[in-house]
Design a protein around this nucleic acid. Structure first.
Lengths: 334, 334
DNA sequence: CTGAAAGCGCTAACAC
DNA sequence: GTGTTAGCGCTTTCAG
């Protein structure tokens, strides 16, 4: 049997309440008593039971994190931001992979709620009606990180994906490109498909270029899908001269796909990626890309969540972090 | 106020014990009673409180995971293996980043124990006396993943790092190289420094080559340190013709560092990495590397932990997974 | 097959 | 400053 607060109380000759006070740093304890208690704790090797505390206090100092895939270079960076801030505020994190599978996501929310987490950071794809219903039923706050909620019903932290994509494509147009390919995620994906595509289209239209749907190729965010996309782009009769890829990993695939076929980047193709993951400098030429501050999105989400958990006033439920373009070698410089 | 097991019991006209039984899938319940209870649960939207259950049953179905850095491409893959198997066995995971900082590591173990995790998967660097003492004091099982314990006091899952490194270097020697550089981690690091270096040295000696300590450069596992290492290797009067890097990320840096200075890989330098992370195919030339099954190490560690948690008999506390070399383009083929 | 009752270890009034 | 005393919501004997 483990030693409990009761054992400590007896050993120190005080009540359980007093032990609880010193353990929780309550200042209403006479220094000498505190010392006695601390000694007893030391002596007995007492370790507070957080589960009992959680049951009694209805706070677990644990938050749930639902993430599509922790092994992704993108999401793991986000997770680190979340965890660091959680630690800073004395929370622990229960991490769950969802693979963006709706059933799993719903199930995980329930599991986390059963475990009485004090809040949830949610990363995923589309927020369906069912997701929304689930979120609304939650007794604890939920914040969405790098996840779009069309209705803006829930607190979230993102960048302006559409604008960011538009900026990237505009950049390309201003460099003189008129045929720009896009390697997009599925258009069902609110961010990597829909928003970024919308940004692409908006840039094309604002610059009065002709929109050609053949220039849109769909990938699945993997390096290999970038390589494959180049099979398409390089065999078109009227090839694009620049490619905008909606993720860095696909952009690397695009670069290598082009090079493997004997094309130059930049030159035959300029390429621009999205995210500014560490990959973007681990390639030759280095990758021009849209900077999405993943770590910060994670950190800010968690910070926001702590405010909700503390019932602090929050003015901006929907925060939008700045983006910018980092110019490197994969785009020509004139 | 949330609905409790008591509410369900009243609603269904049975005792709490019965509700508990159906919730926990105990077969000793008459089908009709079970149905009544299930209906009441549905009706009331009852959600079991895992904290209360944890306090009463002394099992939380939660395991702690201590990891140096979840944003690392190496560790995040391991974490995914752990989480998948944990999910399979109905456990959740509390994930903590340690940055391999000893104080943090010790602190985290205590925090996890306070939270009453049923077990811990530990990833880290050196297991000091203090670590060992802490592990021994743990009331729940701990397994080390991709972490060496010289004394073999604790259950662990690894590959044979020394042999793997020896194989890599031997390969290089058999391809005709006689001056082989090594980009190692700090020699204080049991795995990435000590073991791999030992393997390098062993290969050199077995093949009767001369060991030249100038050929050993120390890096910090980052891409940039790979680039920097090439400043050294390319300016030596008697340059190596092959480089063995103790991580893939450093190996990419080595390749690009060489290329940036106008050298060819392979040709001027053959390079071989370690881990077979996804990076190894995301570079030109693609990287020949030692395959370390990260996901599997995570998965097997977690599986092993479940056995301990279930008090099953375990014959091999120390498991060693196989390694091999994946030949790609960064080494010449003759 | 079902119910009664005693905790699990701690917090949080409330009293003194 | 410190102690008393209810619970928190559930599992788990033990009876029957």
């Amino acid at each position: 049997m483990n030693t409990t607060i009761y054992d400590v109380a007896r050993e120190a000759g005080v009540s359980m309440a007093t032990v609880s006070r010193v353990v929780n740093g309550n200042p209403n304890v006479k220094p000498t008593t505190r010392k006695k208690v601390l000694e007893a704790i030391e002596q007995l090797g007492y370790r507070p039971n957080a589960v009992a505390r959680g049951l009694a206090s209805k706070r677990t100092t644990t938050v749930g994190v639902i993430i599509p895939d922790i092994s992704s270079i993108f999401f793991s960076e986000l997770a680190r931001g979340i965890e660091d801030i959680a630690t800073m505020y004395k929370y622990n994190i229960i991490l769950c992979n969802s693979d963006q599978n709706k059933e799993k996501e719903i199930h995980l929310i329930n599991t986390l709620l059963e475990k009485q987490v004090d809040g949830i950071v949610y990363m995923g794809g589309e927020i369906t009606e069912e997701h929304a219903a689930q979120f609304k039923r939650s007794p604890v706050p939920i914040v969405l990180a790098a996840t779009l909620d069309q209705e803006k019903d829930f607190p979230s932290v993102n960048i302006d994906y559409k604008q960011a994509a538009e900026d990237a494509v505009t950049t390309l147009i201003e460099k003189g490109h008129t045929r720009i390919g896009m390697l997009s995620g599925s258009l069902d994906d609110p961010i990597n498909g829909f928003q970024k595509f919308a940004g692409y289209r908006s840039a094309i239209e604002k610059k009065n270029l002709e929109f050609d749907e053949n220039l849109i190729v769909l990938g699945d965010y993997t390096y290999d899908s970038g390589i494959e996309a180049m099979d398409t782009f390089t065999t078109m009769q009227d090839k694009p001269t620049a490619i905008f890829a909606s993720s860095d990993e696909m952009a690397l695939g695009v670069i290598h796909g082009a090079q493997d076929k004997g094309f130059n980047v930049p030159g035959d193709f300029d390429v621009i990626g999205f995210d500014n993951t560490r990959l973007s400098v681990m390639v030759r030429p280095t990758l021009t890309t849209v900077v999405q501050p993943m770590y910060d999105i994670g950190a800010v989400s968690m910070r926001l969540l702590t405010k909700f958990m503390n019932k602090e006033e929050v003015t901006d439920h929907t925060v939008q972090l700045p983006h910018r373009i980092e110019f490197r070698q994969s785009t020509k410089n004139d």
